[in-house]
Design a protein around this nucleic acid. Structure first.
Length: 424
RNA sequence: GGAGAGAUGGGUGAGUGGCUGAAACCACCGGUUUGCUAAACCGGCGUACGGGUAAUACUGUACCGGGGGUUCGAAUCCCCCUCUCUCCGCCA
């Protein structure tokens, strides 16, 4: 969320910029400022009363020590009404503070200057393309047919075990998953990322820290008996490592990489366009997360984009990179690049990665700050993350684009990991 | 799951219901001394939200795992919760 200070100092700018996200912030901001003024007034009042109370209490202590019992008791009586006043003002303060926070979490992050206005994904800005779209024969098949023919990914079996959207990977299909995960992690390590293997269930505080709670509660599986959530992405546990942490400036940027299964309920968003691997309830993903100095966070974003691009290049997949427009970018992001690979049998682009700079929006929720020696006060860090990469659609593209009469050719870089070069 | 012990600032760790936002030590920062380094000595060293200021200074309040209570006054007493450790049980 945006900080109060920033809102107070940049009201017009925020309203103007949020229009890019098709969000009219005027009313919320006015209310925030109004409520915050009330909050300040109330605090000033209650602080004064508390100061008075503290003074009296100290005096009473002194009087008792000097054995002036009667004077002490007389002073005690003065406190009764003070106490009540404090109690009611405290309650008022708490409720105003609560209101301010409720308003604050409704404001989206302001988009970066480069983010263009737009309605939806059709207004996204293509940055560049790479790779070559393969010419497949007329007999080409979509991946959901191929995986069935080869018996490497089994949806029906997953449905029996769990439900729709929980496929079972079998044989070379399973091994291909493992190969991709290892490949992505190794490439990340070479690029300076530190590998972590976090829990895949998180508590409420973590869900709030990265912004899934309270609004998007429905996206996560919830284990109610223990009040834990299945992670929708490794971003949640890995970013929350830095919740309530003040880091030294020299430590920045902190670069972590994590593989986790990801769980998404995706209620109500199923249809023909999400067949096969295109959308799942459980899938595997390698995620990169950076905690960055605000001064250099956009350089870090570029670095992450380059890293992801490099992965796709190495897998020899045709891709394009788009910068999301205001209408397509997420609530929490200031700038997002989506990576899409071309799926030659479905003849469509599939999103395989989303790389974002959240600036201080998440950091403010997380209370993650940094401090340099010459800084009086700690300041919020910038957080960034990106998929590097999400497996299912990469797998779909490999299967479709690399289909031959004899089988699916494995990209060269993966062969050391799979131990085979074709799935037949 | 059962029994017990505990949770204090970046770390170790003291703390009798008032003089404790919190000793001491370590780490860290600034300085003095000194051929250099080290040592020694002196000083500084939390966070949030207010007031104040051009900005400092200064100043109010809150915070000793979290939440409630008792009290004029709570790190300290009481209740609930969470977590950690030890022992027992169970277990990949």
């Amino acid at each position: 969320m945006l900080t109060l200070k920033f809102i107070q100092e940049n009201t017009d700018l925020i309203i103007k910029r949020l229009k890019v996200k098709n969000f009219d912030a005027t009313e919320i901001i006015n209310k925030v400022i109004e409520q915050n003024n009330r909050r300040k007034e109330t605090q000033a009042k209650v602080d004064l009363l508390k100061a008075e109370m503290n003074t009296i209490s100290k005096e009473i202590g002194k009087l008792f020590q000097e054995k002036k019992i009667e004077e002490a008791n007389a002073a005690k009586e003065k406190t009764t009404s003070l106490k009540e006043e404090i109690k009611s003002l405290d309650a008022a303060f708490a409720s105003i503070d609560d209101e301010v926070n409720k308003l604050l979490v409704q404001l989206p992050n302001i988009p970066h200057e480069l983010v263009v206005p737009g309605r939806d994904e059709t207004d996204n800005v293509e940055i560049r393309r790479g790779g070559e779209i393969p010419q497949l024969p007329e007999t080409k098949k979509p991946h959901w047919e191929i995986i069935k023919d080869l018996d490497i990914i089994d949806f029906e079996l997953g449905t029996k075990l769990t439900g729709a959207g929980f496929p079972v990977y079998k044989g070379k299909g399973a091994k291909l998953q493992r190969a991709l995960i290892s490949f992505f992690l190794d490439e990340g390590e070479k690029a300076g990322y530190n590998e972590v293997l976090p829990p895949i269930m998180v508590n409420e505080d973590s869900g709030f820290g990265t912004g899934q709670l309270p609004d998007k509660e429905g996206m996560m599986y919830h284990a109610q008996a223990d009040n834990l959530y299945m992670v929708p992405t490794a971003e949640v546990p890995v970013t929350n490592i830095y919740r309530d942490v003040i880091v030294d400036e020299e430590q920045l940027p902190i670069k972590n990489i994590a593989y986790t299964p990801c769980f998404r309920r995706e209620a109500g968003s199923w249809g023909a366009h999400v067949r096969g691997l295109n959308r799942l309830h459980q899938f595997d993903k390698v995620e990169i997360v950076q905690i960055a100095n605000p001064k250099t966070s956009y350089q870090q974003l570029d670095e992450m984009v380059a890293h992801v691009e490099n992965l796709i290049k190495k897998l020899d997949l045709p891709y394009r990179i788009v910068r999301l427009c205001g209408g397509d970018i997420s609530f929490t992001s200031a700038m997002t690049y989506d990576f899409e690979v071309y799926s030659a049998a479905q003849e469509r682009w599939l999103e395989v990665s989303s790389v974002s700079n959240f600036e201080s929006f998440q950091a403010n929720r997380l209370k993650c700050r940094y401090k340099a020696k010459d800084m009086k006060k700690p300041e919020l860090v910038h957080t960034l993350n990106g998929s590097a990469l999400a497996l299912p659609r990469i797998v779909a593209a490999i299967i479709e684009n690399n289909q031959t009469e004899t089988g699916i050719k494995i990209p060269r870089v993966l062969i050391p990991y799979t131990g085979f070069d074709i799935i037949e």
